[in-house]
Every structure is written in C-alpha cells, then in structure tokens.
Simulated scan of single mutants.
Amino acid sequence: MSAVTRRTAAVLAGRRVWLCDLDGTLVDSAPAHEAAFRAALAEVSPGLSGSFDYGAHTGASTRQVVEGLGVDPALAEGVIRRKQRLYRAYVLDGAVPVLPGAHRLLALLADRGHTAYLVTSGSRDSVTRVLEACALTGYFRGVLTADDVSCSKPDPDFYRRACDAWAVDPRGAVVLEDSAHGVASAVGAGLLTLQVHGAAPAAGAVPVRDLEEIVSLLGTDDMSDMEALDMEALDMEENPLG
C-alpha cells in the first residue's frame, strides 16, 4: 500500500462535488478527434495534416488547436467547422466508446449522494452527441463546454468559471482529468485533481491508474484494504490529502 491510506478515501468521500472532464477521461475519443483533424486539415493544408500530432494538443479546444497550428485566419473557421462535422459523424458511427469504469463510477457517485458536473473543452453540439451515444447524459447536473466561456484549458479561469456557474466551493470539490492541459487548469484554480489515463504525470495532480481504481477506492467498506494511489507528485503542505 502506498502513502495514501484511509485518510485519502475519507477526503474524497467527503467532497460532495465532482467536476469531470470528458475526452480521454470518460470516453476514448482521441482516435476520432485525430482522424477528424487530419481530414479537415488535409483539405486546406496537406503539410499540416501529415505532421499533425493530436497527442500534443489533448485537452485543448478545436479552435485552440487550429489557431495554434497557424492555419490561415481566413481559412480557420472553415477548418474548425469541418473538423467538428467529421468528429460528430464518427460519434454517430460508434467510434467514440465509453471507457471502462465510467458508468460504474458515475453511478456510484450518484448513489453516494455526490453531485457530478461535466467540464469539457468540447463544443456543445459534439459533447451532447457523445453523452447521448455513450448513455452518459443523465449523470451530470450541469455541463460547461468551450462554447460557454471565452477561455480554454489550461487557463485556470476555465475551472473557475465552472465553480462560479454552479456555486461550487473548491474546498468541497474534486476534479477528474486526464490531460496536462486539463490538470493545469484545475490545479491552477485551486482544485484537488485526480489524473487518470495520463501518459505522464502532470504537476499537482494525484495520478490514478484508471476509473476502476477510483471505484474501488470509493466503494470499499474496509478502508484498510483499499488499493491506494501514488501521492509522490503532490506538494504535501498544500494538498488536503497530505
């Protein structure tokens, strides 16, 4: 058992609000996003399409990615709209599966009286379609998308806007993220953050293997037998789990 013991479970169980990311956290959307980006870019700039690395942009909005690639501003809006249409078609074709443990975790949170909100860099239309396709719609009391705010992850204002919109006290909330962009936004807003499915640990977050590990942590009746998380990445003086 690692440094996180029963106190970790008590802290997480006591935090009544969960702010969840979507892409890469609850659904496996990266392949569909990458394919949509490559196809949209190929219609405008084959050179950009060939060198495009979606992994370097995970957690960012479509607009943020397109602008960051240096697409001609006169063409950027068309690329954004085309990418979104392609991605939504992939969603309808079933190319964006829900990740293992997502339904179990969200159902457990609801059963324990926790409130879940969705905080995502996706567009409203795309997010709505993913939630419907993956049967995730009913789990969230509210949804904040890139269409609702003027900033994007990793800007901490993204999560600050979410907390303001739903009157969430950061001291009573926990964030579930996967990407470095998302973690930076949440940690910068002063929120306790769990990072799942991360290729590399992001500064300030509690790394978690997968969603099933969180289910095990929250669902156990015997805290001494729970599977623990690795806390070495945290500043123990500031982190409430320390």
Rank of each mutant, 00 (worst) to 15 (best):
L176T: 09
P201N: 09
A36F: 00
R16S: 10
T120H: 06
E237C: 10
G70F: 07
A205H: 09
S216G: 15
L194M: 14
Q84P: 02
D111W: 12
T58H: 07
H57K: 10
D222W: 00
A202L: 13
A146K: 05
I80A: 03
P240G: 02
Y90C: 14
R7W: 11
V149A: 03
A42L: 06
R124D: 06
V215G: 01
L48H: 02
A135R: 08
R6P: 05
R6S: 01
S29H: 04
T137Q: 13
L176R: 03
R63Y: 05
D222M: 01
L234K: 04
I80H: 01
E238S: 15
D155T: 08
D21R: 06
L108E: 09
L229M: 13
T120C: 00
E177G: 02
L75P: 02
P46C: 04
M236S: 09
A39T: 15
D235Y: 01
G242L: 05
G101W: 05
D222Q: 00
S150R: 15
C163T: 10
R63D: 02
A60V: 10
E34K: 09
A74C: 11
V65M: 14
M226K: 01
G198D: 06
A203L: 11
G68V: 07
P154A: 04
A165K: 07
D147Q: 04
L86N: 10
D164T: 11
E227N: 01
Y90G: 00
A180M: 04
V143F: 13
E232S: 14
L241G: 03
V183N: 07
V206I: 15
L131G: 04
G122H: 00
V4H: 03
V127S: 03
E132N: 07
G55F: 01
A133Q: 08
A36R: 07
Q64S: 12
R6W: 11
A173V: 07
L41K: 05
P31F: 06
A200Y: 08
G94I: 12
A162H: 09
V175N: 07
L217C: 05
T5I: 09
E43I: 04
V187P: 08
G47N: 12
E237V: 13
A133V: 09
G50E: 11
I214V: 15
P201K: 11
L48I: 04
G55S: 04
V4E: 02
A146G: 10
P201V: 11
D93F: 00
T25R: 00
A233H: 13
S121R: 03
H57Q: 12
D210M: 09
L92F: 03
L86F: 15
F37T: 01
T145Q: 06
R160E: 14
T25I: 02
T5N: 09
S150Y: 12
E237S: 14
A40C: 12
A233Y: 12
H197I: 11
R63M: 01
S224G: 06
C151P: 03
C20M: 06
P73R: 02
A13I: 01
L108C: 13
G47T: 11
S126H: 03
A40S: 15
T145A: 05
A36T: 07
G138E: 01
E212T: 09
F37V: 06
S216C: 12
R161F: 15
